[in-house]
């Protein structure tokens, strides 16, 4: 675990400094603030850093901000709308595993204020009431699942080309995201169908913060990530004899969020006919 102490960012007064322009890289730790958005909608999260408010909306699942934990924000400032009242950042957020009791702020909703895409839209409300009308006409529909299981994927057709997947991790964690794990399942099915050889290579990352501090992930994490990927891929049915596992405890020199990763490469036995 990195020896980073809670910073008192929340106590800093917001200055009137000009916002960073689109494309500006950012890398900092801060306390998330939960913003209530009204009785019928969810919360959104933002952070305040160097007098600027950044929104933490639309995170990868594991990056959903948590009070009582700092969040590591890494990426580039985006143009465009300001959900949750802050600049949006293209990149990754990481919930830091250690507890920080100072991260404890919930801001009540301001009536009439729009908080961006997180609030329930009028269209969604209208779609919901249309569906409800159907149920009113036939209440039995209410216990019949409206969704269907996805149809099984068709078998891959030649040419069987190599495929790659990069799984990105939150800081100091071996947890892959929901989306990456869906992609991994598809990749393993492809590898099985094409009698491929699979290689895993996992790394331990490092991030340089804007204030100059260097955060390195715990030693051993590259191996832990590689082992977990190996267990998942063989558990999903790939013959262990077709799998090579490698890891690099590096750590990757201040590569930021892309340095916390597992690369999986699938090389089919042949290109098929």
């Amino acid at each position: 675990m990195p020896a980073v102490r809670p910073t008192a960012l929340l106590a800093m007064a917001l200055t009137a400094a000009a916002p960073p322009s689109a494309g500006t890289p950012v890398s900092f730790l801060a306390c998330p603030v939960a913003q209530d958005t009204g009785p019928d909608s969810d919360l959104c999260f933002f952070v305040e850093h160097d007098g600027q408010r950044y929104s933490l909306t639309n995170p990868v699942d594991y990056a959903s901000a948590q009070l009582h934990h700092q969040v590591l924000v890494e990426g580039r400032v985006n143009d465009g709308p300001a959900p949750c009242g802050g600049l949006s950042v293209e990149g990754r957020f990481s919930v830091m595993p250690e507890i920080d009791p100072a991260c404890d702020r919930i801001v009540p909703a301001t009536p009439g204020m729009a908080y961006g895409p997180n609030a329930v839209s009028a269209e969604r409300k209208a779609a919901a009431s249309a569906m409800l009308a159907r149920v009113e006409a036939d209440p039995a529909l209410s216990i019949r699942p409206i969704y269907k299981d996805a149809a099984p994927e068709p078998a891959p057709t030649p040419p069987f080309l190599p495929r790659n997947l990069a799984v990105y991790y939150p800081f100091d964690s071996d947890r892959g995201s929901l989306g990456d794990m869906i992609a991994l399942m598809a990749l393993v099915r492809y590898a099985q169908a094409t009698h491929a050889h699979v290689t895993i290579r996992a790394t331990r990352g490092q991030s340089r913060l804007d204030d100059g501090r260097l955060l390195s992930e715990a030693p051993g994490l590259a191996r832990q990530r590689a082992d977990k990927l190996r267990h998942i891929i063989t558990g999903l049915g790939l013959d262990p004899a077709r799998l090579t596992t490698d890891f690099d405890e590096g750590p990757a020199m201040a590569g930021g969020w892309p340095s916390r990763r597992g690369d999986i490469r699938v090389e089919p036995a042949n290109r098929g006919r």
Binding site: A34, D36, P39, D40, S41, D42, L43, F45, D61, Y62, A63, S64, A65, Q66, L67, H68, H69, V95, I106, L178
Partner: peptide, 21 residues
């Protein structure tokens, strides 16, 4: 009826946010 679900161990930390409404 929504309410604020906060600091539930093994729940709020599983990728849904803390708090979660």
């Amino acid at each position: 009826r929504r309410f604020i679900i906060q600091d539930v161990g093994a729940y709020n930390d599983k990728g849904i946010g803390n708090p979660f409404k």
